[in-house]
Write a protein that binds this DNA or RNA. Structure first.
Lengths: 240, 240
DNA sequence: AAGTGGTCTAGACCACAGA
DNA sequence: CTGTGGTCTAGACCACTTG
């Protein structure tokens, strides 16, 4: 078994929703029927549907059936689904996004970073500042700390490409969950210099801690975004 | 059966994590043992653990065990976990939060609202503007649209108390998922007037659509927050 | 080799919605 | 009454980690 069956089934059903085979507002075949079609037990089908439910793609009602939900409506300009687990270049397109490395050093973590990344004072971290550009226009000023022990052999080439790809594909690490704090602040001198912001322009700031699936914190970062070029989008779910 | 067993078990385990019976970094008893303790099958235990995993409270690793994760670190000032499914008064305390109703009317939805709330032109909506105060200081300017057909008999008393409590407790409706878009903007005249913002002060803006568990959109709203008094917090998860 | 969590099955009973 | 999804069980096999 290469992949879990329920993941394959979820992917297949999602594809049919996307290509219009299963249309918005219409019921899906019932779980028993799907089970026969995919040649699995009903529980396996249900597990697939549970995941799609949590993603907000379908909803189920006992006694009634399972229905396809619509696409999510609010979208404007260059909004990207701000996903903590995908790098900016993968969100917005490798062609459009480029990076300029402003700082890349190794240091011992201060107390705040020790707390956020669950490190001892003696365990070094990378300290990285990058300016991210979208179609050569300044978009985001990122300041990132990562434990050296978890991300060995980071170098400038990787910083110019995608740290996330390196972590996933080369190091084979999986992100688990992320804690994010989004606020608005006034532009400081750095923002004026690198983001071409005017004095006191609004800046959209994101602070986040990202953990691996095994519970180890792998990143603490802040991202400062030009207010007119970026917003954050989340889908929250009330299911258990 | 009043409640599902797996929900009861999840609650029991969460309580033991919170009160320190199960400590951060330590392993939980294995699934077989928990199953015997709770007198259920292993699958039921696993279902409970899956939920706690998605909430970021524990992590599991095949071949190793299940471990308790730590509390989430970044917290500052009056931050509240910005939960789309709990009203402001329930997040920040009924004593601290008061409301001033600026507008409360019924009207036919324009095209944008029709799209967001999946309504016909002939289906009326409430149009509500409220100023929310925290310890009598202006915090948020909310502009909310809700379909009249889903929320009958809304009145000023409810607006001054909690719309969310009314929807949950009186109407017995459950929120399913929410789509949120967070951005930073410059203060406009409204913000200057009601939020005591200075001209061009940063404003943290939230737009959201909230759906019921049955997939019907029940709310489209925008919230404009003073940048120095509020930020939004989310926990995102990479599990299926 | 032993112990862990992950997946899957077949079958059962329940609660709920609609005709 | 029938069909739907929700829950639960007992048992089985797998992949992975550690000794």
């Amino acid at each position: 078994m290469v992949k879990a069956k329920y993941l394959e089934i979820a992917k297949a059903i999602e594809a049919k929703i996307m290509d219009g085979t299963f249309k918005k507002g219409n019921p899906l075949p019932d779980q028993q029927t799907l089970a026969k079609q995919f040649n699995v037990s009903r529980l396996t089908v249900k597990k697939a549907l549970d995941g799609l439910d949590r993603k907000g793609l379908i909803y189920k009602q006992s006694g009634l059936g399972t229905f396809v939900l619509g696409e999510i409506p609010i979208k404007e300009g260059i909004d990207a689904p701000a996903n903590a687990f995908i790098g900016l270049r993968n969100q917005m397109g490798k062609e459009q996004v480029s990076s300029k490395v402003i700082l890349f050093s190794i240091e011992f973590p201060n107390e705040k970073i020790q707390e956020y990344l669950d490190l001892k004072r003696s365990e070094p971290v990378y300290n990285i500042r990058r300016l991210r550009l979208y179609n050569n226009e300044p978009l985001t000023l990122e300041h990132t700390y990562m434990p050296v022990k978890l991300v060995p052999d980071l170098d400038q080439d990787i910083l110019l490409d995608s740290i996330y790809d390196y972590i996933h594909e080369k190091l084979n690490l999986q992100f688990g969950h992320a804690y994010r704090r989004i606020s608005a602040v006034k532009a400081d001198e750095y923002d004026e210099k690198y983001l071409d912001a005017k004095k006191d322009d609004p800046i959209l700031e994101l602070q986040q801690i990202v953990w691996l699936t095994n519970g180890q914190p792998i990143e603490y970062s802040t991202s400062k975004n030009r207010y007119d070029r970026r917003s954050y989008i989340t889908v929250e779910n009330n299911r258990f």
